[in-house]
Structures are given as C-alpha cells and as structure tokens.
Design a protein around this nucleic acid. Structure first.
Lengths: 205, 205
DNA sequence: CCAATTATTGACCAAAGAGTCAGGATCAGG
DNA sequence: CCTGATCCTGACTCTTTGGTCAATAATTGG
C-alpha cells in the first residue's frame, strides 16, 4: 500500500500504521464502515485496540486515511491513457488495466463501492473535484479521437461509466458472479475476453 | 411493495408491516444492514421501536423479509425474455427494463448491492439456487439464438453480467455518476441511449 | 547505562443500540 | 357498551463498541 509521507515517523510508527491500514482495508472492505469494529481491525493487524487508537485518533480517521491514500492508486490507470497512442488500443488497455485491478485489489474496489453506496460522506469534495477533473481530461482525449474519426462516436462519460461498472462488478459482486457461474470458471479471464470483444465492436470506427 | 401472504392478518397488521418494510427499505438502502438502526426504521415508518418489534421479531427478520420479498420483483425481467421474440429486440427490451428499474427502484438496487458486497449472508442459498436457475434459463435462450445465427456469438453469462452491472451502476453509484457528470444531465436517459447503441453493436449478427 | 521519549496495555467509561416486558390503550364482534 | 383480543409504549436490561487513561514496558539517543 502506498503511504509515503514518512516525515518524522519512527520505524515502529511506520510499520504499525501500515499494519493498521492493511488490516483496516480487509475489515472495511468486508463489512463496510459501520459493520467494522476497531477490535477486528486490531485483531487483523495483530495489535491491541488501545494501541490502534494510539496511532489513529478514531475509526473515522483510519477510514478516511485509507480512502484518500488509495484513491490515487485507484484512479491512476485513467490518467495513463496516452493521447498519442492508438485510440482503440488505448481504451482496450485501460479496460484490461481496470479489470486487472479488480482481480488484484478487490478489497480496494469494495472499499470504494461501500463508500459510494453510502453516499460518499468522506469523498464528496473529491468526487466533484479531483475525480471529475481526471475524468474530464480523459473525456477530452476520447472526444478528440472521436471527432477525428479514429474512434467510433459514443458518449464518452458513459463509456467510462461502462468500463468502471463492468470491471468493478467482478470484484464487488464476486460472490454473485461465482454463484451464477458455478465451479470451473475463471471469471476474470473470461471477462477479459468478453470485454475486449465488446469494446472492439463498440469503438471500431 | 409486494407482500401478498395476507392470510389471517388484520388490517392494522397489514398496514403496519407494510409501513415497516417500506421504512426499512429506505433505511437499509441508505446505510446497509449494520448501519441501520431499528429506531431509524421506526422513525421512517412513524411507529415506536417496540411497536416495530411487535411486528417483526428482530432487525434481521425485517431485513430477510425485505430481501426475499423483493427478489422476485427484481429478477422478473430476466424471466420475461421471450424465446419466440426477435432476439436483438428481446435483449434490448431487457436492458431497457433493467435500466428503468434502476431509475424507479434505486433503493431496491442498493439493498441488493449492499447484501452482495457483504458476501450475501442472507442470500447464499438463493444465489446458487433460484438465481442461478433463472440465469441458466435465459442463457439457454440466448445460446439458442446465437447458435442459429440470429444473435452475434458472445459468452451469455458475461453478457448478462454486463447488463446487470451497467444498469445497476446508475442506481448504486448515483452519487458518483452525478458528481462526475455535473448538473444539467439526465443520467438515465443518456444511459438508455448509450446502452441501446452498445448492445445493438455488440449483438447484431 | 541512564534518562527521556515512545510504545503498549488492562481496566475503565459512556453511548448506542438490540431486544424485553408489564401494563395500559384501542378495537372488533357480540 | 362490554369484553376479549389486538395493539402500543415507557421503562427497562444487556451487549457491543468507540474511545480514554494511568500505569508499565521498550526503545533510543546521549
């Protein structure tokens, strides 16, 4: 996980804050904010409850720290779309990157899913601010590609929503996906194939 | 909402159970199971907490009743796919129906989203049972259409997942969608257009 | 090796929240 | 208008849980 403002933190502080955030990610992503208890987080981190509260003032602060710390990493792929790249391939790469993240970081996906479901009390400024900005940048690139006829014309915001929803679906609703598919399936690699085909069809000019 | 086993219930019982379930739907869909309190539900229903517990033995029972009561309604559109219909149109109708439900019943959508995120403790049997069965029926129809060349060949399970995820996204993550789009948008009608185009492209033989 | 700082914890506290219950209010049928 | 059944609630209990704190243990730098 990506803490880097180690300014003035002791070795122990760095290690324990990391342990706590790591444990909290597991607990919050399983139970949501209200469902999680500091005791569970402490247990997951291998620390005592008062010790957890020695490093973070409150449950809320742990949660907020997690969200803001992870948001950059979560949004990174969207900023990686290269305006100079081959349009279709850039989009397909983005889709693949998002799907890989759902497979590799399902806890992060669920953490954000819970938060947004709740109405995103800890993210409201960010949603209308940084997130929106990042999306607009990507939208501008997409629009440019579409206007120059190198990508088929579709509404770019909803294109992005579709990518988010379909890729994250495999992390957030994994229980359902697996239950419906039954055994002997690899949801993620099947999804990769499906999505590649889908966006190729949708976006080929 | 759809309670129908009114057998032997007095008028008052019917009315109050309905009030409670209605209030509980609002509260659970906003806060999730753990975040919801019986007091909030009582408040929403205009009843006292003990009175709520006079009609339902526990918070858990309210929740379980809600889920099982609403599941049928939620799944209905999938069973409405007509094997005799025009394949592409049938799928497009299903997509439209699901999107309409997201717009009209966002609370239901979020209720299920929360439950599945949690790992679906109240739905496990159903997921692998009734839901899976319903999906398999639809899959069979789709496969038939695809084999006879009336619909383009894609993996039908993932086709269904894609419909679920994209349509429910607009209900479950509405905060995010609105924040990203900004004012002056009608997410749902834009989505309708986008999805119609998408599935037409994907599935036209 | 010795302070001073940092880290840790057992034992608390207070609030919230699920669920109970005895008794009072209301209502429906006669 | 009476009575038994249904309905409702104030006041309660018990558990969980977020958070505090004083005392103890480790660590670190001089």
């Amino acid at each position: 996980m990506g803490e880097q403002d180690d300014r003035g933190l002791t070795r122990i502080q760095r290690r324990n804050r990391e342990l706590i955030l790591e444990g909290a990610l597991t607990v919050f992503s399983n139970s949501g904010f209200r469902g999680a208890t500091i005791d569970q987080i402490a247990g997951e981190a291998g620390l005592s409850k008062p010790n957890v509260l020695y490093y973070f003032a409150s449950k809320d602060e742990i949660h907020k720290t997690l969200l803001t710390t992870l948001l950059d990493m979560w949004l990174a792929p969207l900023s990686n779309i290269d305006p100079e790249g081959e349009p279709l391939q850039e989009v397909l790469d983005y889709v693949a990157a998002k799907l890989r993240m759902s497979r590799q970081y399902p806890r992060e996906s669920r953490l954000f899913a819970y938060e947004i479901l709740r109405g995103a009390p800890h993210l409201t400024e960010i949603l209308g601010g940084r997130l929106r900005g990042t999306v607009e940048d990507a939208v501008a690139i997409l629009q440019d590609w579409m206007q120059s006829g190198r990508l088929r014309n579709v509404e770019p915001h909803h294109l992005i929503f579709s990518i988010w929803s379909m890729t994250q679906h495999y992390a957030d609703f994994e229980v359902q996906v697996r239950a419906v598919l039954g055994k002997g399936h690899d949801p993620f690699s099947e999804a990769q194939e499906f999505l590649d085909d889908l966006y190729r069809r949708l976006l080929s000019p």
